[in-house]
Each structure stands twice: as structure tokens, then as C-alpha cells.
Amino acid sequence: MIRLAQPPRADWQRIVEGQGLIWHTADGRPYWDESVHYRFTAAQIDTIEAATAELYRLFLAAGDAILADPALLARFDIPAAFHQPIRDAWAAEPPALNIGRFDLGYDGAGPPKLFEFNCDTPTSLLEAAVVQWDWKQAVFPALGQYNGLHEALVAKWRDLADYLPPRVHFAHADEDSGEDALTVAYLRDTAAAAGIETVPLLVDDIGWDHDAHRFVDADDAPIAALYKLYPWEWLTREAFAPQLADSLATGSTLWIEPVWKMIWSNKAILPILWQLNPGHPNLLPASFDIPDGDAVAKPLLAREGANVSIRRGGRVVAEAAGAYADQSYVYQALYPLPEPAPGCFPVIGSWIVDGAPAGLGIREDGLITGNTARFVPHVIEG
């Protein structure tokens, strides 16, 4: 796993914009950074793929344990009204893409280590599935890339088609960067490629029909199935939370992804994974209590590195601002990320689709990976 420099394509901005990546520059510097890339050996990719499959197995077992123990579920700060809907959805296994991104620390030699699992609202999907593949084909056509994401997504939508209503709504928040809109547009494209009719929708335009007891869109059309790039923990705290619980109980809307994703995407699962699998090579020690050694403090529901702090020798050496400071925290042992360039620390994003490993992306940032991290492509040698 080495980091190498190469000249960016002369018209790279036009190329990636044509692929839908409008949000390619942030704070005056490239977010999509093709001036460097990472090279892996086939054996290293095999290691990452095997670790991803193993972590998914651990999450399945942890889900069973958490939902069987009310005391464990209480650690997640999930409103009590949604505990039973989570259990019901876990048992029923409603149609789902079951996609997610394991964020891993990896130095190319030791076992990959789990930082967290982004499986409710994972982004950087278009970059990983399409943009870096096109870059590889143009710049290093003879080399490989660990990337079956696009094909896996289309295949999974095709598998789901018989279990879905005629139209599926796709919703996201109206946020400034456009990243959520980009991700949802790409997922709509993959669904359309599988023959599914899709309808765009802003979260703010979701309404409730009190007579029919169901969610509707801005045209008052029923929302029979909804893919939403909007966190479950936000939905359960919206003014319409009682109606949401009603919808989950009656099944009037099929939610993609299902409500049980709340337990996997919540960082409270990290100490529980460690309790269930102490010493596992792909896990870092984690606790609900402040440890004696070097650690990373993470709010349960923080996003994009917000309010994360790094503690060494009892002293905070790095921290990120954010709006999650008043949450409960977990503490994960500090993993020394490789630093192939000064101030540059890569985090592996290893993707699953339908629970199976499907490819990876890499983001580079400082000690804390935030929303201004750069996406860097990769290839496989030989």
C-alpha cells in the first residue's frame, strides 16, 4: 500500500462533472484528488475484503445480542417508541439494499481495524463506484481496481424489484454542499438501470395524510416505498415521530434502509462489539468509560468527524467542532494511521452491498477525518 503522485488529467473537472460529481472542489482545493493515488497488492486487497466480510458477520451477531437484551439497546439513546419497530424489522427482514461503508485503519501490513460503520446514510458512493473507475480506465488501463460497486447495486435493485411497489421515492435533505443530492441521484440511476421507476423528493416535502394514515409526497401521492438519505435518529426526533411510529407499525411505507440500521450506525455498537469479541484482530478496544490509555472520543450519533477528539497521555491533542457535544460518548483505542505525506492520513472505506464486500474508496485528511477530507483513487498492482 503505497501513495504515488501523477499529473491530474488536464480537463478532470469537466470529466467528473459529466459523471455527476459537481461537488469536486472544497475550500479552494480538490475534494476529488487525482494528483495522487494508492497502489495495493492483490494480497492486501484480499486482506481488506476478508476483514470486511468478517466485520459484517460480527455486526449480524451483535444485532442479535443487542435486540435480545433491553439493557444493551438502552445504551443507544434511541427513543423508546422505536425499540419494538427495530426488533420487528430485524426479525422480518424487509426488502433492503443493505449497503454500507466500513471505515478502516490499515497500514498495508497488519489487520485492518474498524473505526465505525456508515450504513444508514453512507456518502462518497459515486466517487467510489464510478469516478475512480473511470479515472483508472483512462490513466492506468492495464491495472486493476477493487471495485464492483456499480454492478452490485444494479443487481441488488433488480433482486428487489419484485418486492417493491411500482414507484420508489428517493429523499434527501436540501443541504448546501449538494453531496446528499449527488448520492441520491446516483442511487436513482442504479435503480432505474434495474427497471425501477423512481421519484425525487426532499425530506421537507414529506407530508402525512391524516385520513389515510400514511406519508405522501408534495403532490399528495402516497409514498409506498422510500429510500431516504436522512438519518433515522433525526427522523425519530422530528415533529412527525408519532406518525413515523404509526407507519412502521402498519407497514404503510416501505423504508429503505430499514429502521434497524439505527443500531449498526450508532457508535454505541463499538463497545458492545468489543465486549462480545474481546481481542478480535479487526476490532479496536472500545468502552463507554474514559480509558487510561490513548483513545478517540466519539459522540454516539456524530457525523463527519464532528466533536471527535483524540487523547494521548490524558491530554486532548486534536479535536473537531460540531453540534454533538451534549451527546453520550464512546471511547475507542487510538490506532496509529500511516502518514505517507506530512499531515496526510488515509482511511479506507470498504463497501458492502447486500452484506457482501463490493469495493473500496480512500479519504485523506488530518488526524480526524471530517467533511473536507479528500477522496483519492486506488489501483491494484499486477
Rank of each mutant, 00 (worst) to 15 (best):
Tyr38Thr: 01
Pro7Trp: 10
Arg167Leu: 05
Phe140Trp: 12
Ile48Arg: 11
Glu127Lys: 03
Asp134Trp: 11
Thr183Val: 12
Ala249Pro: 02
Pro200Phe: 10
Ala152Gln: 12
Leu182Asn: 12
Pro291Trp: 08
Gly105Met: 08
Asp246Met: 01
Asp64Ile: 03
Phe102Gln: 09
Thr41Tyr: 09
Gln332His: 12
Gln137Lys: 14
Leu226Trp: 10
Asp365Pro: 06
Tyr56Met: 06
Trp90Lys: 00
Thr41Phe: 11
Pro299Tyr: 07
Leu202Arg: 14
Leu201Pro: 07
Trp260His: 15
Asn307Gly: 06
Leu334Tyr: 15
Phe76Asp: 07
Leu273Glu: 03
Glu304Cys: 04
Val16Pro: 10
Arg57Trp: 02
Asp292Gln: 14
Pro336Gly: 08
Ala193Ile: 08
Thr123Ile: 06
Ser35Phe: 02
Ala321Arg: 12
Tyr106Gly: 09
Asp33Glu: 11
Arg188Ile: 03
Val379Gly: 03
Ala333Thr: 09
Asp219Trp: 07
Trp90Gln: 00
Phe82Trp: 06
Asp289Val: 09
Leu187Trp: 00
Glu197Val: 13
Leu55Trp: 01
Ile45Tyr: 11
Ala218His: 14
Val203Gly: 01
Ser35Asp: 03
Ile22Gln: 15
Ala61Cys: 01
Pro79Thr: 04
Glu364Tyr: 09
Glu364Ala: 09
Thr369Ala: 10
Arg237Tyr: 04
Ala173Pro: 10
Ala43Pro: 10
Asn147Lys: 06
Ala109Glu: 14
Phe82Arg: 01
Leu114Pro: 06
Ala96Phe: 00
Leu114Arg: 06
Ala218Leu: 09
Val36Cys: 11
Leu55Asn: 02
Gln137Trp: 05
